[in-house]
Every structure is written in C-alpha cells, then in structure tokens.
Amino acid sequence: MIQVLHPGLYTSIQDLGRLGYRHIGVPTSGPMDTVSAELANALLNNDPNDALMEITMLGPRLHFLEAATMVLTGAEMSARINDKVLLTNKPYTVASGDILSFGRLRQGMRCYLAVKGGFSAHKVMGSRSMYAGITESGRLKAHEVISFVSSNALIEPGSVGKGRVSPHHTFFHNATLPVYKGPEFDLFSARQQSILTSRQFTVSNHSDRMGYQLNEAVFKHRKSMITSPVLPGTVQLTPAGKLVILMKDAQTTGGYPRIFQLPESSLAMVAQKKPGDPLGFGLL
C-alpha cells in the first residue's frame, strides 16, 4: 500500500486504457506517454497492462506503507526516497515507511511510477485508468491509500538489476513529430499544407490529458464538416486556425478538420512537452 500525503499537480492511476466503449462515447484513457509507461512495467517484469502512477510536472509526496520494488521512468523530476536521490529507469527496493518525494522538473513533463505487480485501483469497465465520470475521480487526492495487486510487491533481493537503461534524449528534445496525413489534410491547398508541415509551433497553457492546444494560428478557414469520429493523436484545425492535438482523455467525436494523425510514438513525445516547448510536424 502507498499513501498519498500530497497529490502534486495532477497524479492519476493508469493502465493501458478502456477498450471497447468508444461507440458509447467513452475515451480510451491510459498513459499519455506509453513509451515510458511500458518501459516502467518492462523494467519490473510486469505485464504491460499493469496499472502505474502518472505524475505531471509537480510531483506528489508518497508514503510507502509496505516494502516494494519500484521504478520511475519518463520525466526527470528530482525524485528522492527520504534523502536519497533516485535515477529514472532503474529499479529500487524501498522499505515500509519510506517517503517518495519529487523536486524540480529537469526534463519532460510526465513521470511514471511502477511497483512490482502494479497498483490495485478499482477496475471500472475493464480498466483501472482514472477518468472523471467513469471512475470516482480523475486523479488521486490527499490521504488516499492505494493498494498493490501483489501481496508481495518485492523482487527478491539480488534479482533487482543494478544497471540502468539510459534515458533517450532525442525522445525528450525532438521537436519534429512524425505524423500521418489526417482524413481532411487533402482538402487544403498545397500552400496551406506546406504551412502545416513546415511551421514551428509552441505548446500552450491549455494542455492537459484531453488535448494540447498550440499557441500559433496558421490560417483561418471555412471548411466545415459533419461531426465524425476522432482518436487520441488526431490533430484538429479550428476555424480560427489553431491546432489541437487530441490526447488520451479526448472526446470520441469532433467537428473540426482532422489534418494529422500521430502514431503512438509521436503522441508519447507530445506528452513529455510542457507549455512553451517547440513542436512541429513532419509527414511520414
């Protein structure tokens, strides 16, 4: 078990998401950065769908109420167990009573905390991913206690690797995201298409688990369309010329032209960008 002493800015439990309910308007949810989330589970020999904690920008303060083997991946957030500095991408064994805290954000935006066997948040509609309206709350609150799935969340001493997978720096700093054309890309002129694929944008403050809005407007347009399905990774172009990248908690239908579709690997890179970070799109 782990107790939330302070929840941080936005901390939630996520497994790979809620599949099979898009037809009734339920978003997929799941980790924003699946690359880092899958790495966390892999480093502990967990199942890829085991639930982990997604920590955003300002980390929580967590109290381990039992011993566990844990790992952090994704953003570098100056994590410590008690006073000991922790590295990302390296499993650690912590004792009952240990306090996990976070400090200054050094790289990225989202950090993943996995424990051996995963967190045991309540499953709703086949998934432990938190999403307000489906689960009780969309995020963890102060004083909340989360159990571990495994009655023994420890990897045997001696079996915990001493090595560390080095963080992939281009993953955090690559500003040009590989993308597919979206269904409405070809409705725009060659000049407009070249603007969309060559312009540099920056991430706006209106960026969360539902969507990332970009600051710079490209061109106004009047291409209206009948509301149609969208997916996480769909990039919409609003009539005012602003781009919105739909993220894991995005709604399932939309009425703006869909100019790009990001593959999962590009979506993971977006999830590590914070307001002000540069970003552009390159066709695959």
Partner: peptide
C-alpha cells in the same frame, strides 16, 4: 454495417464508433 462488425467478430478489430456518416474502426 455495425451489426455486421458485431456479428462477424473479425480478428484484430478492437473497437469502433460512428457518427452521422462515418464509422471509425480501430
């Protein structure tokens, strides 16, 4: 079309949703 998707249970199809005049199959 959707009732076909439901009944045929095509291997590899994970989910779908529809809206007015389109269906998106994942």
């Amino acid at each position: 079309f959707i009732s076909f998707l439901k009944e045929a249970s095509v291997p590899g199809i994970l989910e779908w949703n529809s809206s007015y005049c389109s269906v998106l199959i994942v």
